[in-house]
Amino acid sequence: MLKTLKHGLIAAAALAVSAGAAMAEWPDKPIKFIVGYSPGGGFDAYARALAPELEKSLGVEVVVENVPGAGGQKGAATIYRADPDGYTIGIWNIPGLTVPQLLGKANGFDLNDVTWLATLGNSRYALAVKADSEYQKLEDLCSLGRPFKHSDTGPASTSSVTAYIAMNLIDCPIINVTGYKGSSDTIVALMRGEVDATIKPIASLNKYVKSGDVRLLMTFEDTPSVEGVPSSGEAGYPDFSKFQVVRVIGGPPGIPADIAARLSEAVVAAASSDTVQEWSVSSKRPVDPVGPEETRALMDELMGFYTTYKDLLAQK
């Protein structure tokens, strides 16, 4: 906490310096990297893997700071409200933060104004059932004569939103059993036979596929990436590939263009470094960095996509 205090003092001191001078010397002090989740989670792991490489390319210390709370919104608001001087950036959960904003439940940030710097990577979803389940394809779940049961953590989670919109798109009745303590717990619920199926990121499900506990029915992407499992594109559900978890790096609105450009470059370089790529392989967390233009385009596309289903989400 001394660090926070120190940063506060430094930030106050920096205000005294003229903006032009500060820009010329940027970066000359530590950069804060905000994570809206607790230490030890997925977003935190990305941030901590990236930080040392960012330090190398920027030449200043990069301090990871966890600001958990309100489903990641507290962290988002902390980044959004920071001074746009290039000394505060953070990692964003899309569409985990998109949906609350659309429903008017966002507190302290507006994704349309965020200075997007780079996309670290995205995780695709898959539909899974218990290994010895009789269901062989998505259609089996839709014709049970009752809504099929789906396990999830909370009603606002990204995978809940995905399951709800996707199944509504194809008129497949679904009951979302929420309250499980984490994505592993939702998969264990599937194995206990409490629910019929679950839609979760492929990386989370893969471990259970390998251990022979669950079976994938379909991956949510255009071209299949898992051997022997059809993609949603092949199965005739082209819209399903829009559903994904995207991990994006962004800063407060209004970061000067030259500083934003250097930050973007540094993030992409750090994410492409051997160290981070090796970490990506060993921990099975996808890292395929793309720059600011593509990121902005993706953000606009996803915002547009979820806006289409705003009414559906509101009545959920």
């Binding site: 997925g42 893997a49 990386a203 251990s211 921990s283 099975k284």
Partner: peptide
């Protein structure tokens, strides 16, 4: 488990 994740280990059924 958080410490394991930080060390690049992804805890799961195995």
């Amino acid at each position: 488990l958080g410490i394991l994740v930080l060390h690049g280990i992804d805890p799961g059924p195995s």
